[in-house]
């Protein structure tokens, strides 16, 4: 993989001694969508701010497209677009003027056609001449994205894009992200909605207390760490788990109507066949079987709890 963003031994500590980032190493491949998942205060925003130049690192290096973000900040920053977590916009500006401002600030010549194209992409074409203060929260967030895209960046950082956004807009945003990925833009987003990471990311990084605990291909991560559950609905309720089945660590539903068996998909044997045989031998009649894959959320909660 060719890394477009490369973070090496990045540390950030504040004057009070608080270590927001503890030696973070991260390589982001060109064209991928990376979701950084973590609880509040994990260091997600600090990491993004440091890469984008808003916060100065205490030590360590960051390169974007091979350009050091400290020594060669012009070339590095010209490649980056940032959508901040907070809605930070000038209330009296029009949508279009605000996006044009961003484009110029990043050194690109004025191009009204390009700006209109970006606004259309975010369904803002009918709001172009409106003052930002007259827009709804969701629309303002779209304006932030339009501003970040105004200079046609190669790498886009989205800091909590779904915070305070309704379901519909979130789905729209995912569509925009998918479209950007298709055009070759690398996307890094932070979120604490696991659903979001699961829906759009190629890779998932889990960050807590200033450290990246894990970073892995999403499907691989879920396959490797995923546990599956098998629920067996019984024809007649079982008063207790028969002694012959004690070795399976079954969980009996309070009403006795079903038993749940948890197994590891990555293990050499799942034990399902013998379980079903033993169930038959113990005289329990099965009515139905269901399996369920654990979600990224279960993995995440498990990992952060372990810490």
């Amino acid at each position: 993989m060719t890394a477009i963003v490369s973070v090496k031994n990045l540390r950030k500590s504040y004057a009070g001694g608080f270590e927001a980032l503890k030696s973070v190493n991260l390589e982001i491949a060109e064209g991928e969508i990376l979701a950084l998942l973590g609880p509040n205060g994990a260091g997600k925003t600090t990491l993004i701010s440091t890469i984008c130049g808003i916060t100065s690192p205490t030590s360590g290096t960051v390169t974007v497209g091979g350009h050091d973000t400290q020594k060669d900040y012009r070339a590095a920053r010209a490649m980056i677009g940032l959508v901040p977590q907070e809605i930070s916009l000038e209330p009296f500006e029009t949508v279009r003027a605000s996006v044009q401002f961003s484009r110029g600030l990043f050194g690109k010549p004025r191009d009204d056609g390009k700006v209109d194209e970006i606004l259309a992409q975010l369904s803002l074409d009918d709001k172009k001449d409106r003052k930002i203060m007259t827009l709804s929260g969701g629309m303002k967030r779209r304006v932030l994205i339009a501003k970040a895209l105004a200079h046609e960046p190669r790498v886009l950082f989205l800091d909590e894009p779904s915070a305070g956004v309704d379901v519909e807009l979130r789905k729209d945003m995912w569509a925009v992200v998918a479209g950007l990925k298709a055009s070759g833009v690398t996307i890094i987003l932070t979120t604490h909605y696991i659903e979001e990471a699961e829906a759009i990311a190629d890779r998932v990084g889990i960050i807590a207390k200033g450290e990246i605990l894990l970073i892995q291909d999403k499907a691989e991560l879920m396959a490797q760490m995923g546990k599956k559950q098998l629920r067996i609905d019984l024809a007649a309720p079982a008063a207790e788990i028969p002694a012959a089945l004690a070795k399976y660590a079954l969980h009996r539903a309070p009403d006795g109507q079903s038993l749940t068996y948890t197994y590891d998909t990555k293990g050499p044997r799942t034990g399902i066949t013998t379980l079903l045989n033993d169930l038959q031998n113990a005289g329990l009649q099965m009515k139905d079987l269901q399996t369920q894959q654990s979600s990224l959320e279960d993995i995440f909660v498990g990992l952060v709890k372990e810490e």
Binding site: C52, S88, L89, L105, F106
Partner: peptide, 18 residues
């Protein structure tokens, strides 16, 4: 001061400007 107040200063800080 106004960009500091509205928060839009993030853009100045992350832009390729000296």
């Amino acid at each position: 001061y106004f960009p500091k107040f509205t928060g839009t200063i993030y853009e100045l800080l992350s832009a390729p400007v000296s």
